[in-house]
């Protein structure tokens, strides 16, 4: 669907993107992640034809450049922050940018989907940050585009709205819509993204499926006992990779060959185990691990 090949971007003499290549397949949600200033928004702007670049960007085999925007007919986007006309109501803003014959029906539908009904007829100048953000996302979705680009869509959203947005993204994905989403809230991104593109200082670090990125993570067994230091020493002597963390002993899952033997080693010393559970590193740890 979207193919980005060898994307380079310069601001004056400074190169900010270096040979970035990745692909978005139909019906996939791609998380674009990286530190502040890594180049995420710049990549989105080049895809949307509002920032010059060298390289090749194609949507459904149609080339996108700053002079050729035809392919963007089927793209909806929210970049940086929602731009709204303060003198228009939410409904009017949506109506303004809706195309096609059934404009009113499209507007009504997106108002319902984004839970905007209570304030859709109020002027945007009275909106809170969260309301503006939701309207900005609604504007990206209203024309039922096949590709939606969202830059930090969870900004300003409360937990309920964040969950509703996540559910809506998954629903649209099931209907075949592709998404490119950048977000610093990695726990949320982890819940919706199928693929991950990681950028660091303008370089592509990896472009892979979410499961492949998470597979690099280590998992641990966390033991809460009444003698954590003694348990750690004991297990270390037996060749386990162990660390004491706050109120528990963290044992690397890879170093455990036989769970029964490990438990016996602890219980045989008459040490009480209060809690035992497994912990998997999340996307945040993956990202930090990959970047560092």
């Amino acid at each position: 669907m979207l193919k980005v090949n060898n994307l380079d971007k310069w601001f004056g003499k400074k190169q900010v993107l270096h040979q970035i290549s990745f692909e978005i397949k139909p019906g996939r949600v791609v998380g674009l992640i990286g530190a502040n200033g890594a180049g995420k928004t710049t990549i989105m702007k080049t895809i949307l034809g509002i920032s010059s670049f060298t390289g090749d960007i194609r949507l459904n085999d149609q080339k996108i450049t700053i002079d050729s925007h035809d392919a963007l007919k089927d793209v909806g986007a929210l970049i940086e922050y929602p731009g709204l006309y303060p003198y228009l109501t939410g409904r009017e803003q949506l109506y303004l940018f809706t195309r096609g014959n059934d404009r009113r029906a499209k507007v009504d539908k997106v108002i319902e989907e984004m839970h905007l009904t209570t304030y859709a007829d109020a002027k945007a100048k009275h909106y809170s940050l969260g309301m503006k953000q939701k309207l900005g996302i609604a504007l990206a979705l209203v024309n039922k585009p096949s590709l939606v680009i969202l830059d930090e869509p969870m900004n300003g959203l409360d937990p309920k709205a964040t969950r509703e947005l996540r559910e809506l993204i998954l629903q649209k994905k099931a209907e075949g819509t592709s998404f490119l989403i950048s977000s610093h809230i990695l726990s949320e991104l982890q819940k919706v993204a199928d693929d991950v593109v990681i950028i660091n200082h303008g370089h592509l670090v990896t472009s892979n499926t979410m499961s492949a990125v998470l597979a690099r993570n280590e998992s641990y067994l966390l033991l809460q006992t009444d003698q954590n230091n003694k348990v750690a020493q004991l297990l270390q002597q037996r060749g386990y990779q162990v660390a004491v963390e706050e109120d528990s002993v963290k044992v690397a899952r890879d170093s455990i060959q036989d769970m029964t033997a490990l438990l016996h080693a602890v219980l045989d010393q008459n040490i009480a185990i209060h809690d035992i559970h497994e912990q998997q590193d999340d996307l945040e740890n993956s990202l930090l691990g990959i970047i560092e």
């Binding site: 702007k45 509002i50 925007h69 793209v75 986007a77 970049i79 940086e80 731009g83």
Partner: peptide
């Protein structure tokens, strides 16, 4: 209003 960018990233040329 921050709306100029949104006008430009549609299918129309600047």
């Amino acid at each position: 209003y921050g709306t100029l960018k949104a006008l430009l990233y549609r299918q129309y040329s600047s």
